[in-house]
Nucleic acid binder design. Sequence first.
DNA 1: AGGCTAACAGACAGGTCTGTCTATTTGTCA
DNA 2: TGACAAATAGACAGACCTGTCTGTTAGCCT
Lengths: 203, 203
Amino acid sequence: MSTSNQPRQAARERILQAAFRLFYARGPRGVGVDTIIDEAGVAKASFYKHFPRKDDLVLAYLDQVDQTWLGQLRAAARAAGDDPADQMVGLFDALQSAARREGFHGCAFINTAAEATPGGDVHARTVGHKHLVRAWVTDLATRAGALDPDLLGRQLTLLLDGGLAAGVLDADPATAASAKQAAASLVAAACPTSRRPPRGESP
Amino acid sequence: MSTSNQPRQAARERILQAAFRLFYARGPRGVGVDTIIDEAGVAKASFYKHFPRKDDLVLAYLDQVDQTWLGQLRAAARAAGDDPADQMVGLFDALQSAARREGFHGCAFINTAAEATPGGDVHARTVGHKHLVRAWVTDLATRAGALDPDLLGRQLTLLLDGGLAAGVLDADPATAASAKQAAASLVAAACPTSRRPPRGESP
DNA sequence: AGGCTAACAGACAGGTCTGTCTATTTGTCA
DNA sequence: TGACAAATAGACAGACCTGTCTGTTAGCCT
């Protein structure tokens, strides 16, 4: 029963996996639904049952990337320790990991937004994602006691976007390293109150 | 004769102008050659005489954007004075101007690279442009006496790319302002030798 | 066993895209 | 005036894309 229950949702899952890989590599407009159908090994009717319009699949793809990327950012931040200031720098390790990954092709949201209709659902979803990330970084900046959390949030997001987006041109690991150093510089300049030692006690 | 000599090169020019506007707004793959032909008011045979493949027009488009954008960057840098350190900050005014411009739609190179075939001419051209910009900024950093010019060049380019690329999502003028402030921070941190006053004499 | 749901295979229509081709018009120069 | 170069209008082929439709097969629950 477990093996026969698996196909119940397996078709949708296979479509999503194929879409994730193909959309990210070539962009949604660069991949026809027939290609996804072949790659996923599903029937056309099944495809359109799960995703009535191709854009529905694009939206699901964006949601998937959103969850994955935010998860990686949060994990990298958490790995940097408990201090929000350290976390703001540490999250750039997620950028470095992404840049090293085979098949790295830049920022899925910017790449997708570039070819999406400005007023449509797809474009709106990409904007929503970036707002989420910035809100999270700004929250970290607030908790780190930054003088201007909104400014620092924007600046770090800018570095992140720059490092991600440039990946579609040239996946240079030195770029991510430079971004992290820049982040450290900006965080240090914006949070002058706690000049905390690497592993120390409260003053 | 002057009026009749004009059309000799006018067709090519009209095509380029139409392509510039349409390609930037919708991306090269989002615009068919028929649309460009209509918009430029030329015949299809004329189009393919000047640009045998559509990609040839895309390359010409990229060259045009390259010249325009580099010119704006250099002008903004020059407007900031003679000090290379000031110029590295001042060039971000070009970003702010671009973000304010009607129809701002992010970075033409990143947007085009996102939909270009990874190994092809078009993709190579976009990479070439970014290398040019970075080399120019790195040169400024060197002349400003930065401790690590390559690092500073990468960091400023990162900020520039981030501000440009994010424009395809949301053309927020505050983003460009934040980028300029971040640049000022990084330049100040990287060039500690000359702590030059806003309008002063040599020490 | 029989009904039901989901998936499968694949043809098909209608549209768009690139690039080629024919035939005609216009302006220039000798 | 007549040859020549270049532009014009537009049909056309071949490929690809989205979305619909018909018919078949396999597993699940009662």
